[in-house]
Nucleic acid binder design. Structure first.
Lengths: 183, 207
DNA sequence: AGCTTACTTTGAAAAGC
DNA sequence: GCTTTAAAAAGTAAGCT
């Protein structure tokens, strides 16, 4: 049963660390922080222990992206809060962290015929334009995820809020392809 | 009352004026691409259906017209790439592609992805290659499809590679550069595709 | 002919144009 | 709709040696 493993590639989460932030102050105190209000309203800050990138807004809200798993999201946000405290900025104690999206990859270990899959899943349920992109786009309602299917058998699952959503998405695809005899 | 009638007339005028503009746009683009009358008519039908379903709301007439033409070319099996449509329209490729997806879904066009085979006649005539080479190209593409060498690859690139190989096998050799230019792909793409086709289909190319 | 860099697609949040 | 972030998939493209 180990072949059903998925690899989480990116986790996006949002939270609120304060009622408001003076991004100019943070930009001057945080090494490498980028802030161009006319370009984008958020301050960009990258960290490396667990690798991640932050988008910090004047409203006190924060977006964390690039983490490799959900636990890392909590770790880096906690580190971020301490970093803010260290330069004299107060932060909310137990911030509510919401995972907004998870990107994962998987492998069915079989060469796939995307034209056959397009017909099998129904042309009205998929998008496949090899002139534009090599992957077939399949949107699933339950779990609500989007799966990119490649001729190599590799998959990308995105849109899920939990690792389970991604795993179930892969299983739905595997089972539907298997039922159609396309595996 | 009278006012209501004036309003209807005004709306009617605007609607007719917009339709006339859209049809002239379709004609202009189709002419620039040298498309036959049947394709223009098909595009006009697609455009009218889009109007009847109010799909123009929030979209530009030019964008829907370009998307309708792109769809019509595919329905008629004489595909043009989004890049080719973009060249004769004044809308971006991104906008044309987005609008195409929208009307394709709303009008339930159910179009299969473009087949490399549909590009063969046009590319071959652009290279002055005869029917024999076209037949050979199609034969190669059928085998390629059976051996799963076309999934996920750009239809124009695969078609170009098949034509390149066929031209050599038929003693009417065209260079990678010549084929690349008519197909709108790079020589690198032709090289990658033809190496894969030659190897997997056991075709020996003597240069 | 390679190698490197980069763009295509998918998803979601943030604040503002 | 756009702007910005991150990351994977595979194909195609462009620049440089």
């Amino acid at each position: 049963m180990s072949e059903s493993s998925i690899k989480i590639e990116n986790v996006v989460a949002s939270t609120k660390l304060a009622e408001e932030f003076d991004l100019t102050v943070i930009e001057s105190q945080f090494e490498g922080a980028e802030y161009n209000k006319q370009k984008f309203p958020g301050l960009v800050y990258r960290v490396s222990d667990p690798k991640a990138a932050f988008l910090v807004f004047t409203s006190g809200k924060v977006v964390c992206t690039g983490a490799k798993n959900v636990a890392d999201v909590h770790t880096v946000i906690g580190n971020m809060a301490r970093k803010l405290n260290s330069i004299g900025i107060k932060t909310i104690e137990n911030p509510q962290i919401t995972v907004q999206n998870i990107v994962a990859s998987a492998d069915l270990h079989t060469i796939l015929n995307l034209n056959a899959i397009a017909i099998g899943l129904g042309l009205e349920n998929i998008e496949y334009e090899p002139e534009q992109f090599p992957g077939l786009v399949y949107r699933i309602d339950e779990p609500k995820v989007v799966v990119l299917i490649f001729s190599s058998g590799k998959l990308v699952v995105t849109g899920g809020k939990s690792p389970e959503d991604c795993e179930r998405g892969v299983e739905v695809v595997r089972q539907q392809l298997d039922n159609m005899g396309l595996l | 009352r009278l006012r209501k009638w004036q309003r209807r007339i005004r709306v009617s005028n605007a609607t007719e004026r917009n339709l006339a503009f859209a049809l002239s746009e379709l004609d202009r683009m189709a002419s620039a691409l040298g498309l036959p009358r049947t394709v223009r008519e098909t595009a006009a039908v697609v455009y009218r259906k889009a109007v009847d379903k109010n799909l123009i709301r929030g979209r530009s007439i030019e964008g829907v017209a370009a998307a309708a033409l792109y769809a019509a070319c595919r329905q008629c099996s004489v595909p043009r790439t989004l890049d080719e449509i973009e060249e004769v329209s004044r809308v971006s490729r991104k906008e044309i592609g987005r609008t195409y997806r929208f009307i394709s879904r709303e009008l339930a066009l159910k179009l299969m992805p473009t087949s490399p085979i549909d590009y063969v006649p046009r590319f071959c005539s652009g290279l002055n290659l005869k029917g024999e080479v076209q037949s050979k190209s199609v034969e190669i593409l059928r085998q390629a499809s059976e051996k799963e060498l076309t999934s996920g690859r750009g239809p124009t690139g695969v078609a170009a590679a098949a034509i390149y190989i066929a031209s050599i096998l038929c003693g009417e050799r065209r260079t990678q550069r010549e084929v690349a230019d008519v197909a709108g792909v790079t020589e690198v793409t032709i090289r990658n595709r033809y190496k894969e086709l030659a190897e997997e289909l056991d075709i020996e190319i003597i240069l």
